[in-house]
Design a binder for these strands. Structure first.
Lengths: 207, 207
DNA sequence: ATAAATATAGTAATCAATTACTATCTAGAT
DNA sequence: ATCTAGATAGTAATTGATTACTATATTTAT
């Protein structure tokens, strides 16, 4: 029985480790039922030590949401930045989003859980503002797609944006249910192809 | 302080009332954190009385899932039964599903929550078998749609089924997040129109 | 009177958070 | 280079609240 004492780690790094631990745990259990004891155990610390770095549990959740928001948006921006075609941009965003979720299954669960909760927490505010910016970016891309003739000019922009986000959320939900993130990576391009067909201007009359 | 005693209600009806109470509560709070005390309060009973009608909490969840499964499938079947066109069938199923969720926002939350949980509960088994049957019914309809020429013969059946379910789940998620079920009812036909465009055989070359 | 349905009042377990204390790191003086 | 004081990061034990669940008494309908 070698009860090794955990290394003393600087506060900021310890906070980062905590965020990772929560996202890790959220990948395999309901975010709402992740206890501070479970977090502590996962990062090999005692439960009380957590509160040396966060004033309370809400603060942990806020830090997690901040991480998710920052990293997800960064990956989507990076994927889309060098692409000029709106359709190409949308596909890149779609696949980047899926890849991010496949890498961090806990992330969407934290997001959903927080957004659905009745309580207006700091974490929820963060999540809401991220969703708002995401939707705005999407609408802009769709509008420019119509302008340059890639998308049908009869296209309902709001509905197309809703379906884009919904398609991702649906894919994610089904993969979380199946517990298989690799399947999602494989399905994503095929599903997006149908979506694209739904919003594109017809090229030829072929069925 | 008029502490009125609740009427004595036969056990079976009391169980039905319990199920309704849970679905009601799930509409505005995380299903996983619905306590037996909260259920009891909502149906104006003491907490202990619940356990005169159910052996344990899992049994309550199983009863709820049974209710959801039965009622959702019934509404979808009813909506589709008199329609011969596969595309028409799919639209009817889609809108019936959305209408059901709009009537019972707690239902999808119970479903998601149960399916995502790591624990293999009786409720989870029920939910899984429902999803399986739903997907099978969907694939059959899509296949017959291809056969009768309503849908593109190049259509990826699996992806189309995944997107159908995903579209619903996505719409539901966004409505739960927005806390506005009426918006979902309004958005559903517009979103489904894009999906339909994505799977349909082209009628004319118009953009 | 009897049986079913409910209230009352408990249980042990678990939760987030706090406390008293200890170990370790680091900066500045020598 | 080394010592030491203060700051930092940890443990272990405990708190009051809340959880699912239970034992028993009481009410109500028939």
């Amino acid at each position: 029985m070698t009860k090794t004492r955990p290394k003393k780690i600087p506060a900021e790094e310890r906070r980062n480790i905590t965020v990772e631990a929560v996202i890790d745990l959220a990948g395999s259990s309901n975010p709402d039922s992740i206890t501070t004891a479970a977090i502590a155990k996962h990062m090999k610390l005692t439960q009380g030590a957590i509160f040396r770095h966060f004033p309370n549990k809400d603060a942990i959740w806020k830090a997690v949401m901040s991480w998710v928001s920052k990293n997800l948006m960064a990956r989507i921006d990076l994927a889309a930045e060098d692409i000029t075609s709106p359709k190409g941009k949308m596909e890149a965003m779609f696949l980047a989003h899926i890849a991010f979720v496949a890498d961090h299954p806990g992330a969407p669960r934290m997001l959903f859980g927080e957004l659905q909760g009745a309580r207006q927490t700091p974490a929820k505010r963060l999540a809401q503002s991220m969703m708002k910016e995401y939707a705005a970016r999407l609408r802009d891309t769709i509008v420019s797609g119509k302008a340059c003739g890639e998308l049908r000019e009869t296209l309902d922009v709001e509905a197309a944006a809703t379906l884009f986000i919904g398609t991702i959320q649906g894919l994610v939900m089904q993969s979380l249910i199946a517990g298989d993130m690799d399947k999602m990576r494989a399905d994503a391009p095929r599903v997006f192809a149908i979506y694209l067909h739904g919003i594109s201007k017809a090229h030829d009359a072929g069925g």
